[in-house]
Design a binder for these strands. Structure first.
Lengths: 211, 211, 211, 211
DNA sequence: CCATAATCGAGACGGTACGTCGCGTCTTTGG
DNA sequence: CCAAAGACGCGACGTACCGTCTCGATTATGG
């Protein structure tokens, strides 16, 4: 749970916080996002959906932004990278998963809205990075390691170079899906995923003139 | 100006709308976006910045969403594709322009916010498509035609195939820059742009197994 | 209306304030005081009783205290001093009127509550003085002048002495009724009013040793 | 665990209530009344001033009203009637004591506020009567007996008549001081006390036409 | 040269959500 | 069993914007 801010003192006195409340609140947040969207989402409404008082909500999160980041982060944590046998298949699989995820309104509008808010809020930007972006780079990393074991990719020349490639790959995959589904507003169907995978694979496996 | 809603009757009586107001309002909107972000942006504040009454604003736009789409669309219209002599240089150039544009807060938060709102608002989604996305595909189109003239790209086999490639290219370029700068929150510097261009170029120019 | 704060500028622009709202709000305030008492009185409730938005209420009054002072002051303005033919009859009459007024819950709890609040709020104390206390001293003044015309009281020796007597009389009359009905919690019935009037009249008309 | 034994025994088991807590709470209540007034007084604040948990406070009093009645009643119990040698001097003395008491903010606002609340709460009204009003009538009674011994007042004709006179006297004395200091908001200085005493004394000692 | 009509600024209006605060209750740990 | 601590559901607070409305004052065209 990302809502815990610091180290609680070893001996805690007083009534402890309800663990069930956190779960209920995050679920209610996603539910409200689906029905009302970002601007229609009301903390009072979330509270009553979760069967919780507004104050309980404010005791745990600083505001709408932080709450939605946590609610959306849980969605992204559900992404997986099963071994499909080849790098191409693995890429297609994760791209499709991402496309499915971004077709869900709570993911779409939750993510875009907090990203929009983060443009003037460095703390929020950092929270998004650690709660969502960094956690999902594990998918790219896993895929690369697997492909290297299979011999589809050469071993990493050096760690810095590898990190750059992971970052670039992640931005290209996630960015393409995101732009396709949200900005262009067209479906990331199988044909499109296939085309994207082909371009990506070719571009990433063909050795470039980068010295 | 996209603010005109329907066909005004040929003969209009009464005092005409101030032309200067539109300009002032859109500029004030961008200014407010920079300082306050999306959620902090207030139509009353925009009105007073523009030296205009709130009623004047509501006479021309239905709400915050529509206003910001128009204000942001003007920013994207400033993108250009000068002829740098090669496809690679052209791509690098436009990617950099896009990165610079998305480093401006009014573009970042304006675009992301309306995209977020559009997830539950089909009319808004359509407005974004026509006002922003479709208009900028001209850049990709121009680049392709130029590259074909230079012999860097083969001629289009058929129009449908060409359209698919334009769409894919646009989503990959714009998506990568957008994800890098806004979601990952890292700068789209020259090195990164170079890497991206190489992967894109390789992937797009190597003939694939798509018959 | 005591709600006006200062001199409005000669030329008023914008929509003028609704005159009916003031009336409705003060009436709703008294109604709510009867049903809910001071601590149960809610500005939101007053607003909805008056068919008015909460903001309208806050635009005109600074808070609960000021609102209730105005609402109660209107009640006291209804007191009159009809000529009953003798000083004793006049006193009995006004004492009875006061007793009746203070038997109304809105007057009782409204007055007591704002007096209680005024103990730590000089501005409120001043507002009570000018809106309620000073305005009702007219009753004592009228009674004295009438009695002097009838020869029941000697003419005023000097203005300062007269003012002291008016103040003392007012505090004794109003204080006795107030204490009887509110603190002692017993009815100010005719017998009690008669006794009080006799003591007052004797005490005030018998020349004392104050030179 | 004592439930296994059966019934609650006459002698209470478990930790006994702290006797010091009551004193500390009432003192803290008066202190808070001085600083914050009635509406600013918070039970949570009283508890923390008294170094006591909120639960402890609620175990002993039903709410704000009852607590403040008890806190204020202790103040009034400090009033005394020393023998000054004459009825006039005794009256002046007690009037001055009362004026001093009512110049203390905790007495002023505590008393007025609970009186205001009592207008819609019969139980509270009764509590005020028994805890404050009835207890202080002893002062009037003592003064009358002393004056009768001195021959300044005739012996009581009958007990009912005497009770009426005691009530009237108390309402007039307390009411005048209360109205002067709290409603009129002017000081009950020596000159005013002297005037009041003269009128009262004359009115009460001159035999009236009451058969 | 006015009459009509739509615009302009200003600002009050009925609403809704905000984020905070206090209430009185409950649920812990510890005496 | 009581005490302290503090989380809980609840509801009012006073504020800020929303989008609408009513003003008086402009500024065009059309009779």
């Amino acid at each position: 749970m990302q809502s815990s801010t610091g180290r609680p003192p070893a001996t805690r006195t007083g009534r402890p916080r309800s663990a069930a409340a956190d779960t209920a609140i995050l679920a209610a947040t996603r539910e409200a996002l689906v029905e009302l969207g970002w601007s229609g989402l009301t903390l009072g409404d979330v509270a009553s959906r979760a069967g919780v008082a507004k104050t309980t909500l404010y005791r745990r999160w600083a505001g709408k932004n932080e709450l939605v980041v946590d609610a959306v982060a849980e969605l992204f944590d559900a992404l997986e990278l099963p071994d499909r046998g080849s790098l191409a298949a693995d890429i297609e699989d994760v791209v499709l998963q991402l496309a499915v995820l971004l077709s869900r309104p709570e993911a779409r509008c939750g993510l875009m809205a907090v990203v929009a808010e983060s443009t003037l809020d460095e703390a929020l930007r950092e929270r998004i990075r650690t709660s969502i972006v960094q956690r999902q780079k594990r998918l790219v990393h896993t895929g690369r390691v697997r492909a290297q074991r299979r011999g589809e990719l050469p071993p990493d020349p050096d760690p810095a170079e590898a990190a750059r490639t992971v970052d670039l790959t992640f931005d290209m995959v996630a960015g393409a899906v995101l732009h396709r589904t949200l900005v262009s507003g067209r479906p990331a169907d199988e044909e499109w995923v296939h085309d994207l995978t082909r371009v990506l694979l070719t571009g990433l496996t063909t050795p470039g003139p980068t010295p």
